[in-house]
């Protein structure tokens, strides 16, 4: 074990040294990395989710829709990029830190909750949205109104997610928790009554409930079981970019585009609108 620890430490120090050198040159690199950003000039690469309706979804026709996409497009516009200069890249949860650290993407706008562990690897701008852990139930089911009602109920969440861990350790340890690979599998179970509730961030739930094929079948319970401030991830130490993105977010809220994006993406699903959060990162 000792040998392994030493080996791992050595490997990590090499990685750190590499990233540190990358950061060292960032003051001049940051200004042109967006412009050069690979072979094509004048492109900005932004990491989003590809599989979450309402937030970041790649549609069959190749277009992207969702709240994160709207925010990303607006911020890119403020940074000086037209919509056709944006290249969206899939940022699955486990890879977000590395995508930023390696410079594969300039920004990550992918239901990225700001927390201290992540701040050790990347910097955030924002938050631009505060989601809460909530429950989705069948529209005609009124037996679940608070978290304690979940005990003895069949609950579904995505494997290993923070929401699933919250349920197991805090909210309802006696709930019968089924962990499935995706929200769609949970929704199938919810619809055919083998499950009673689905839990995760209300923004994600609202996005699924607002989908055309699900309209009227499910409702949000409207509990605020946790706070998940979504931030825009960017390279550690890039204060300049952080300030610019924060300014863009402020402008988005003040000129009403933010509210419009919330209404179009989450509107149809009994989602209780909240005012935009205060910017807390950086500045």
């Amino acid at each position: 074990m000792k040998l392994f620890k030493a080996g791992a430490a050595a490997a990590v120090s090499v990685v750190l040294a590499l990233t540190a050198t990358a950061c060292g040159g960032s003051s001049d690199k940051a200004s042109d990395s967006g412009a050069s950003g690979g072979a094509k000039k004048d492109k900005i690469v932004i990491g989003i989710k590809f599989d979450q309706p309402g937030l970041g979804l790649k549609n069959p026709d190749g277009k992207f829709t969702g709240f994160d996409v709207d925010v990303a497009t607006y911020v890119a516009k403020e940074l000086g990029y037209q919509p056709n200069q944006i290249e969206f890249k899939q940022a699955v949860s486990a890879e977000r830190e590395n995508l930023i650290a390696n410079g594969d993407v300039k920004l990550v706008v992918a239901t990225y909750t700001i927390n201290d562990k992540r701040k050790a690897k990347v910097d955030f701008a924002g938050p631009y949205f505060v989601a809460h852990q909530d429950l989705l139930v069948r529209a005609d089911d009124s037996s679940i109104t608070k978290a304690e009602d979940l005990n003895k109920k069949k609950l579904c969440s995505v494997t290993g997610s923070t929401s699933a861990q919250n349920v197991k350790t805090k909210l309802a340890p006696e709930a019968d928790l089924q962990q499935l690979p995706g929200y769609s599998e949970c929704l199938t179970g919810l619809e055919n009554k083998s499950l009673d509730a689905l839990t995760t961030d209300n923004s994600i739930l609202a996005g699924f409930a607002a989908q055309e094929k699900n309209k009227g079948k499910f409702k949000l319970v409207g509990l605020n079981l946790s706070d998940e401030p979504y931030g825009i991830g960017l390279k550690k130490g890039d204060k300049d970019l952080q300030t610019k993105v924060n300014a863009a977010l402020k402008k988005m809220v003040s000129d009403g585009s933010w509210q419009k994006a919330v209404d179009t993406n989450f509107g149809p699903a009994n989602y209780k609108a909240e005012p935009a959060p205060q910017i807390t990162e950086g500045s």
């Binding site: 949860s93 486990a94 830190e97 562990k117 050790a120 690897k121």
Partner: peptide, 9 residues
């Protein structure tokens, strides 16, 4: 991986 973003490796 969800919780320990600073120690993935």
């Amino acid at each position: 991986i969800e919780n320990e973003a600073d120690a993935l490796f």
